[in-house]
Simulated assay, not measured.
Amino acid sequence: MSDIQTSTVSDEGFATTSQVGGFDLQIDALDEEGPNPNATLVATYASCFLPAFRVGGQKTGFDDLGKIQIDADADLDESDDLTEIRFDVYVEADLSDEEFAAIADLAEDICHVHTALRDDLRADVTVVGDAF
């Protein structure tokens, strides 16, 4: 039994609807009916990193960081593959650069998406024809 199960469907074209738990997620390679997969990955990474940053703050004795905002930027190569992701993390709390660096280091260890972005994690693909 898997820990996570999703189902992604496209009846035609490049737009997909993924069922994730009780939620529908629209993703479109052409950015017409939803964000593209790369943009979704960057947003998912930031959405994971932000709560991990809060937990990192708690682990270093800063329980109230206040409002946190992550502005993410990413670069693509000529094949539209992600080559670089950058986060600008804005925090309401006023801490030193060293304290923020310690929290960010912990957040990298805590964030599951950060951990998943590695070369050896790839989908094991099986294709079944005449399925519908």
Rank of each mutant, 00 (worst) to 15 (best):
D75L: 09
Q58A: 13
D71R: 13
P35K: 03
L30R: 15
A46D: 12
D88A: 13
Q69C: 00
A102S: 14
A101V: 06
L50Q: 12
P37C: 04
I70K: 01
E92L: 06
Q58N: 13
A93L: 03
A39M: 04
L76T: 11
I103R: 02
V113H: 03
L50K: 10
L50A: 15
A93M: 09
P51H: 05
D77A: 06
A46K: 08
G61H: 07
F100T: 05
A74I: 08
P37Q: 07
T60Y: 05
P51R: 04
V113T: 14
D63L: 09
I70C: 02
P51W: 04
I85E: 10
S79G: 09
D81Q: 12
T44N: 05
E98K: 10
D97R: 00
D71I: 13
L65D: 09
I70H: 04
T60Q: 10
E84K: 12
F62G: 01
D80Q: 11
F100R: 00
D64K: 12
D88E: 14
A39I: 02
K59P: 03
T60C: 00
A93T: 13
T115D: 15
F53K: 02
C48W: 04
A52W: 04
F62C: 01
H112R: 05
F49N: 04
I68M: 11
D97G: 00
E92Q: 15
D88C: 05
A93Y: 02
A43P: 01
L95V: 04
E33W: 03
I103Y: 04
P37I: 10
L41V: 08
A52H: 04
L95A: 01
E78W: 10
E33I: 00
N36R: 06
G56I: 08
E33T: 09
D80Y: 12
E84D: 13
D94T: 14
I103G: 03
V42G: 06
V89C: 01
N36H: 05
E98S: 06
E84V: 02
V42W: 06
K67C: 02
V91H: 03
H114G: 10
L50R: 08
D71F: 08
A46F: 06
D63K: 11
R54E: 15
T83A: 06
A102R: 15
C111I: 15
I68L: 11
A52Y: 06
Q69L: 07
D63V: 07
A46C: 10
E32S: 10
G61I: 09
D80T: 07
L76R: 14
K59I: 07
E98L: 01
L30K: 15
H114A: 13
A52C: 05
D71S: 13
P51D: 08
K67D: 11
A46Y: 07
T83V: 14
F49T: 15
T44A: 15
L50T: 15
T40L: 07
R86F: 07
V89S: 01
I110M: 07
A43H: 02
T115K: 14
C111Q: 09
E32Y: 00
G61V: 08
T83P: 07
E33N: 14
G66V: 05
I85Q: 08
T83G: 06
F100L: 07
V113G: 06
I68V: 15
D71H: 13
L41E: 01
A46I: 14
F62D: 01
E98W: 00
L76D: 10
V55T: 12
C111W: 12
L95G: 02
V42D: 06
D109N: 13
